[in-house]
Amino acid sequence: MSRITLKVDVDTLRGTLEGVPALQRMLDRHQARATFLFSLGPDNTGRALRRVFRPGFLKKVSRTSVVEHYGLKTLSYGVLLPGPDIGKKAAAEMRAIGTAGHETGIHTWDHVEWHDQVRTRDAAWTLQRMQQSYDRFGDVFGHAPVTHGAAGWQMNETAIRQLDAWGMQYASDGRGAAPYFMSIDGQPCKHMQLPTTLPTLDEILGVDGLTVDNVHEHLLGLTDPNRHGPRDHVFTLHAELEGQKLAPIFDRLLTGWLQQGHTLGTMGDYHATLTHQMLPIHPFAWGEIPGRSGELIVDLDCRSR
């Protein structure tokens, strides 16, 4: 039986306070579990507007209304308003999702800062930010995190190595076609990477005639076992999108995936099915994904599979 792993990136205070509880209610209706990856420090979303000069950024923004999905207040954080501390203001909502039986893990400390700077920052900066998120996760949940999913699929080699130092067995930090072990300077990492395999809604909405009314049909076509055979997938959604304005799309996807016969579950559930399999080893690499501006962590070797 094939599996759809549900990975929820939570980027903002609003997404944590409003989108996470809404997703919990929806998942409960479908009797499904997901992995929620939290931003644990300041919400400086407004600073992301500096990406306006990046190739492809304005094109993406024009397809998905940033103001509609994030709100003016959130877009002011870190610019016109001080960035609120998500881990302090929304700890109860974070704990509630874990109590409800969903998996929880680290997304980042400061989402915008990590997304925009980690590729060029040194080891000291990287380890400081990672330790801040690790410590805050422990403060919120009372236990160590079991997994990690990088903000914006952005990492550096120090960050990847730190996942091994923490003893994590699996993470989802990039994009690709199937699980693998990442190598750095020819040395394989100990933790398994479960890359996002499906396009995200913000990458495909507004492209090739895809709208809020039919985009679910496109994604269900990619996971249809009658067309492609049984195949596991990792789908990344966002508390700010599928947990709010795009919730009806995600609801249709959950219904469709269950009708297709897929099992819906967490990264931990998926990892448990792979622990005795021989997986390939592929190098740490950067690349581009259609519909997303800039480079991100990708499994380049997946193109030959």
Rank of each mutant, 00 (worst) to 15 (best):
V112F: 11
T147I: 01
Y134K: 10
H143L: 11
A159I: 00
Q131H: 11
H111G: 04
A123I: 13
A150H: 11
E113Y: 12
V146H: 10
Q131E: 15
W153F: 07
I160S: 11
E113N: 09
R121S: 12
P145H: 07
A151W: 02
T158M: 07
N156A: 00
F141N: 11
T104W: 03
D139F: 10
A124V: 04
D116W: 11
F141C: 12
V140G: 05
R121G: 09
T158H: 15
W109I: 03
Q131P: 02
D164I: 12
T126Q: 01
W114F: 04
E103M: 11
S133T: 07
L163F: 14
L127G: 01
H148Y: 09
G142N: 08
R129K: 06
Q132K: 13
D139K: 13
R119Q: 15
R129E: 01
R136T: 14
T108E: 01
A144C: 08
A124F: 02
Q131A: 09
Q154K: 10
R136D: 12
G105P: 01
T104L: 01
D116Q: 15
G138W: 05
T158K: 11
Y134H: 12
T126A: 02
Q154I: 05
G138P: 03
T104P: 00
H148W: 04
Q131M: 08
T120M: 09
A123T: 14
H107R: 02
Y134V: 10
R161C: 15
L127Q: 01
D164T: 14
G152L: 02
D135W: 07
I106R: 07
I106K: 09
W109C: 02
H115S: 15
W114I: 01
D135G: 06
V112N: 10
A124M: 00
W114R: 04
I106T: 06
E157G: 05
A151M: 02
V146P: 07
V118N: 01
Y134R: 12
T108G: 00
M155C: 14
Q128G: 02
A100D: 07
T120C: 06
W114N: 01
D135F: 06
I160Y: 06
A123E: 14
G152N: 05
D135P: 04
F141E: 13
N156F: 00
A100Q: 06
H148C: 04
W109H: 04
A159T: 00
G105H: 04
P145C: 08
E113D: 13
A151S: 08
T120E: 14
G138Q: 13
W109M: 03
L127S: 01
Q117T: 15
D139R: 14
G101A: 08
H115R: 13
